[in-house]
Design a protein around this nucleic acid. Structure first.
Length: 878
DNA sequence: CATGGCTTTACC
DNA sequence: GGTAAAGC
């Protein structure tokens, strides 16, 4: 719904944006799953039969042997005979990448503990806006609570500098001698640069911790880019891999752009980028920066022109929009060449296969995310003579049931095709199908539905149950801050940051915050020492300690310095040369560009501190005069150490409040929710708008009102957990159906949620309320307990009936699904149902086929066939 | 036939 | 709503 968000241009350099990119992720997943192949050259392959399958991921040992994507497994073997080629599993005749999806989710969950501003960009990539954390750390440094030590910057690089050491040194201003840059810079600019550099550097220290946490918690390694916006973070992450991180200082942008191909920039890597280069006769980003915005808008769209113009100056205003789950869930398959689908039966077969996968994934999604897709889109490509025509058609998604989905998809295709079947042979398609895809989207939050019919009531019931009377809000808050979920952490983060930016905030609040949320780095005094003294005993950080540290870290620094040098040499030399040639070749074509060369500065350029850089000397070139020997390396690390200390001091001087995060923060929906502290001054008349429900709430009551929302949220979360637990238990426990209740007479099920939600909301049931309020519940209700036969959970006796109802509801749904399935799959023998018996797979029943389809062992899918009978009987009564 | 499958976004 | 492009 909330599409793209943009920050205010005035804050264009205020953020610290990170792109975390998992290194050859699929390979890492395979290594983790099969430790015996760890460290060997690996390429993950899908679809073996043809020439060893297509490679979709290559790890670094294999890359070293020259193996690349776009190779087949056989080619890879030639380059690297000892390569291991794990296969993407095949389910239902198509690749199944769910294990990588799950692994990606695992990683994202770790990332999310660092900031709510996490945007998953793909299965193995995520953007993070860590500005708040940086500002918090900056504050801590100012207050002496945190010191930036060199080991926080291991494996860190800075674009335009030989090593982080040099970057640190630059920031600390040791060598402000003689360089001609400051004459061109205003004092203001210098301060601005320094501030931004410091923030990036602190950001890098945090990213180091983030990456360490990912490694520790998941075992996976990743690389990261640290910059002021998404585009640049993404770009930068690619500079040093694997398992490394790179900072892009503001001032390095323009120099880097001089050798950076336009096509490397995200969004310009395809046809558009080709057009840009072709039409404007340019190659590098620096050249693009010289094209007036009007010209760009003229050649491309207006918006696009503006965007290109901005990014050419290193500006990208797109906000990091919190996103954990995909907005659509889909699957597809190609049927190239001879595999094209020509018969109706085959078409139905594959639609059925796709539908089954969709159903499975949608069900999982509903359990995990408590949402329901309301629309499905079928896409397909047909061959018309020489060319393929692809189409997509959308229809409402009424039920998570494969048979229905497949039928609807087929209908949509038929409806959209003039002559669908051959006139002379109705079993054959008039136009063969080369591609099929089904995806589901337009998700609706299930809790919204329930909210209307009484989640509120449920909550108050829970509250009553737990404490007999209304739970005091403070209790709720305490519980929330004790619990470990992310929502909760993000909330405290927002809160405390608000406090932090509020001058009145006390240190106490801040330190409370860190005790609550900073698990990785414990900033409490004792914890801090422990953290810093890891592997080294020193009571107090001091210069002396820095030096003693060098000895332990020098080797590592040396290596990375040397490595980076080598790398930079390569990149620089090749790219510079390519660039030179380019320049020579198109000198004549530049006439119109030259005529516009003295650009009229628009207001952006005037406040754009990168501008003077265009006239500056290239720091990359300066530093790439390689003087590589050990002494230099040592010197660098000494500088590094000293300079870090300088920064620690400098930070104390830097005024941080002027860079108030408030402005840009308001562009984040996440922060709109920020409770408690913000609105008081803005609504002097003692009424505030609740950002959750939009209602006017008296200021006095805002706190409790918010707690109410919090409790709702929490109970929803618990309900999800509850469901998952239930399902797991259900699928492996023997079925004993107890007496049915008449509450569930909805004959039409929309997904699964309605029944469950209805059940859960109409009658506040037990297990979940006891989950929510467990300690309280236990304390107050030492009443008699029983163990549920279904799930083995301890249930308060008086709630047992309702609890059993849950299980019944659950079974009815499954039963309904099965019935639909049977109806749709043509158990009745109708020729128009799915799937037909085919030459490929004569096994008629989908259920059977699913479990037989190669031990997918979908735990969630192990439905005991026994229960069919019981429930059928029950069901017909309704 | 030959990366394939998957997701998102901009634009019409 | 549908299509094409883009990127992983």
């Amino acid at each position: 719904m909330s599409t793209k968000q943009f920050i205010n241009i005035n804050n264009k350099y205020d953020r610290v944006v990170v792109l975390v990119d998992m290194d050859c992720f699929y390979c890492q997943v395979e290594e983790k799953l099969n430790p015996t192949i760890r460290g060997k050259p690996i390429a993950v392959v899908q679809y073996n039969p043809w020439q060893g399958g297509g490679i979709i991921a290559v790890n670094y040992p294999a890359r070293a042997k020259g193996v690349t994507r776009h190779m087949r497994g056989d080619e890879a073997k030639k380059h690297c005979p000892d390569i291991v080629l794990p296969q993407v599993p095949q389910v239902r005749g198509k690749a199944d990448i769910s294990k990588y999806r799950d692994a990606g989710k695992e990683v994202a969950a770790v990332l999310q503990t660092f900031t709510p501003l996490l945007e998953r960009a793909s299965v193995d990539e995520a953007y993070m806006d860590i500005t708040e954390r940086v500002l918090a750390r900056l504050k801590d440094m100012n207050e002496g609570k945190f010191q930036l030590l060199p080991d926080k910057l291991a494996n860190t690089f800075a674009v335009g500098y030989e090593s982080v050491g040099h970057f640190v040194q630059k920031i600390s201003g040791d060598l402000d001698d003689g360089s001609n840059s400051q004459e061109l810079e205003s004092e203001e600019d210098r301060v601005a640069y320094k501030k931004s550099d410091i923030k990036l550097l602190i950001g890098a220290s945090i990213v180091n911790e983030i990456r360490a946490a990912v490694k520790e918690k998941t075992g996976y390694e990743c690389s990261a880019g640290i910059a002021h916006n998404k585009i640049l973070a993404k770009l930068t992450a690619g500079f040093h891999k694997p398992n490394k991180q790179t900072i892009l200082p503001l001032k390095s942008i323009s120099t880097m752009y001089q050798t950076l191909s336009i096509k490397k920039v995200k969004g310009l890597g395809g046809k558009l980028g080709d057009q840009v280069c072709e039409i404007l006769k340019i190659q590098n980003m620096a050249e693009l920066a010289n094209i007036p915005e009007k010209v760009l808008q003229n050649h491309f769209e207006e918006r696009m022109g503006s965007w290109m113009h901005l990014i050419a100056k290193g500006i990208d205003l797109e906000a990091v929009t919190p996103k954990f789950n995909a907005k659509s869930i889909g699957c597809c398959k190609r049927f190239p060449g001879k595999n094209a689908i020509t018969g109706l039966a085959t078409l139905k077969h594959w639609l059925s296969e796709l539908s089954n996968e969709i159903q499975e994934r949608l069900e999982k999604d509903m359990e995990e995310n408590n949402r329901t897709a309301r629309q499905m889109t079928v896409s397909y490509a047909q061959q018309f003579g020489d060319n393929d025509v692809s189409s997509t058609r959308s229809v409402p998604l009424v039920v998570y049931e494969a048979g229905q989905i497949a039928t609807d998809a087929l209908e949509a295709i038929k409806r959209n095709t003039d002559i669908f079947l051959k006139a002379d042979n109705p079993a054959m398609l008039n136009n063969s199908v080369k591609f099929l895809g089904i995806s589901a989207g337009k998700f609706e939050d299930n809790s919204n539905v329930s909210k209307k019919n009484g989640l509120k009531a449920m909550f108050s019931n829970i509250a009553n149950k737990a404490g007999q009377t209304q739970i005091p809000q403070t209790n709720i808050c305490t519980k929330l801050s004790e619990s470990n979920n992310q929502y909760d952490e993000s909330l405290s983060l927002c809160e405390v940051m608000d406090n932090a930016s509020d001058k009145k905030s006390s240190n106490k609040e801040i330190s409370n915050f860190f005790q609550n949320t900073e698990t990785y780095e414990n900033l409490e005094n004792s914890g801090r020492e422990k953290f810093f003294d890891e592997g080294k005993k020193c009571s107090k950080p001091s210069i002396a300690n820095f030096f003693s540290k060098i000895k332990t870290s020098t080797n590592e620094t040396e290596d990375s310095v040397a490595a980076s040098k080598l790398k930079q040499q390569d990149v620089q030399s090749t790219e510079h040369e390519a660039n030179k040639n380019e320049n020579e070749m198109r000198s004549e074509d530049e006439s119109y560009l030259n005529s516009t060369q003295p650009l009229i500065e628009d207001e952006l350029s005037i406040i754009d501190p990168t501008k003077p850089d265009l006239l500056e000397e290239d720091p990359i070139q300066l530093s790439s005069e390689k003087t590589e020997n050990k002494q230099v390396a040592e010197k660098i690390s000494v500088i590094e150490i000293k300079s870090v200390d300088r920064i620690n001091q400098q930070v104390i001087q830097a005024e941080t409040s002027s860079l108030s995060s408030l402005d840009y923060r308001q562009t984040y929906a996440e922060f709109y929710r920020s409770p408690v502290t913000l609105p008081n001054m803005e609504h002097p008349q003692n009424v505030q708008i609740c950002s959750d429900c939009g209602k006017q709430v008296p200021s006095k009551e805002m706190q409790s009102h918010r707690d109410f929302h919090l409790a709702l949220q929490l109970s929803q979360q618990q309900r999800e957990k509850f469901r998952i637990e239930m399902k797991q238990k259900f699928s492996c426990s023997p079925v004993t159906v107890s007496k049915p209740k008449t509450t569930f007479n909805n004959s039409k099920v929309r997904g699964k949620s309605l029944l469950i939600d209805k059940f859960l909301t109409a009658n506040p049931p037990t297990s979940q309320s006891s989950l929510l309020t467990e300690p309280l519940h236990n304390a107050s209700a030492s009443a008699s307990m029983e163990v549920c036969n279904e799930c083995r959970k301890s249930i308060c006796s008086k709630d047992m009936q309702e609890h059993l109802d849950y299980h019944i509801a659950r079974k009815i749904q499954l039963e309904l699904n099965q019935r639909d399935m049977i109806r749709a799959t043509g158990a009745s023998g109708s020729s128009s149902t799915l799937p037909l018996t085919l030459s490929q797979k004569p096994s008629g029943n989908q259920k059977r086929k699913r479990s037989a389809a190669g031990g997918s062992a979908g735990s969630s899918d192990a439905r005991p066939p026994v229960k069919l009978k019981n429930l059928s009987t029950y069901f017909t009564k309704l």
